[in-house]
Design a protein around this nucleic acid. Structure first.
Lengths: 193, 193
DNA sequence: TTTCGTCATTAACCTGGGTTAATGAGGGTC
DNA sequence: GACCCTCATTAACCCAGGTTAATGACGAAA
């Protein structure tokens, strides 16, 4: 077993027989990225997804005028990939980029699908992964509907302590849905009170 | 079989043996709601979810000051329930209310869980339901990040033709994340061009 | 009929955030 | 050292949207 700590994580969600996990490891390949490298760009028709073994990844949209909107950050142990687009079988709308030197463990979708028939644990993992993705988005919707910029900022800091100091502030602004100038203003207003 | 059209819908997602479906129907109960009635209110610790058989439902948050933020509308054939809260096993943050005379088919969570072990189709349905919920929220995130109010309004009208004329405009505004006054202004500006 | 409640519209005023641009603080590289 | 690049901050200006309040349309109920 090459990745026992990743195994333990999934195993907590749902028991995976070790031989199933070994079969998975067998199909997965490591990918190394330097800071700024892309795992995927919008327009790509990738059928790959994977797990961050080390480093930080950001996922973002770019609108027609070129403005970037960060959807999510991913760290060690978290899944990366154009999840929605893979479910919809459409080309990626998402850019996926390393924010520091990063290693991921990737598997091809076509290589993964047969696992669903091998053992029910993979179906259950599939469900749990979908549920977790849903919960994250529902939480984000809640914050967009109910919190102002400063509220969202505080929440972000609480929920992402591991990121603080590792990413520039303008990327947090992008994640919060405002410009870097606006976030800077909000923070300086807050400091004065 | 009492609900063949609902059966057909789920069956399209994943084959369900008829005897499995009958067992499900056996555990489900119809609930009738008048306009304005609540299926669930924030704070309730409901363990029920279900399907809209007829009518329209809205799901919304209310913030501490009493302002309402509509998360979603649901119509015939769609699932209703405090899905995120049930996954998290926390009391509901969501109000669920009938916007017209409505009938739903409800099942208790404790009655549903055993189905996962009865037959793998329920696991797969569980995964597909989670995936669809995720896709809806991801789409909404995309629209919040990339579209202005008028863009979101047009998209909303395209995607919810069945709702137009059935719900007041201020509820659309709430769904779009703006005040009724703001939406009215945006529409009158658009009309003049 | 009158009355009441719900709703959309419009105006007035204010504030928060977008935009642009200037400034200055690191950090890297040559 | 000088140079460059990235980034955060701040100011000035503008506009979109929040807030409050007045108005009028419409339908339901008495």
């Amino acid at each position: 077993m090459k990745y026992p700590q990743i195994y333990e994580q999934f195993n907590k969600w749902c028991h995976i027989p070790p031989e199933e996990w070994l079969a998975f490891e067998n199909k997965a390949v490591e990918k190394r990225l330097n800071k700024g490298d892309f795992l995927l760009q919008a327009g790509d028709t990738s059928l790959e997804f994977g797990i961050v073994l080390k480093g930080i990844i950001r996922l973002y949209y770019a609108d027609p005028s070129g403005k970037e909107h960060i959807k999510a950050f991913r760290r060690e142990g978290e899944l990366v990939g154009p999840y929605a687009e893979m479910l919809l079988r459409i080309p990626s709308r998402t850019f996926i980029q390393a924010l520091e030197s990063t290693v991921t463990l990737m598997i091809n979708k076509d290589d993964f699908v047969p696992f669903y028939d091998r053992h029910p644990c993979w179906l259950k993992i599939g469900r749990i992964v979908a549920e977790k993705h849903f919960l994250a988005k529902e939480q984000r919707e809640f914050e967009f509907l109910q919190l102002d910029v400063y509220g969202r900022y505080k929440k972000f800091c609480e929920d992402n302590k591991f990121l603080l100091g590792k990413i520039p502030q303008h990327q947090i602004a992008s994640y919060l849905g405002v410009t870097p100038v606006a976030l800077s203003r909000v923070l300086s207003r807050a400091r004065k009170q």
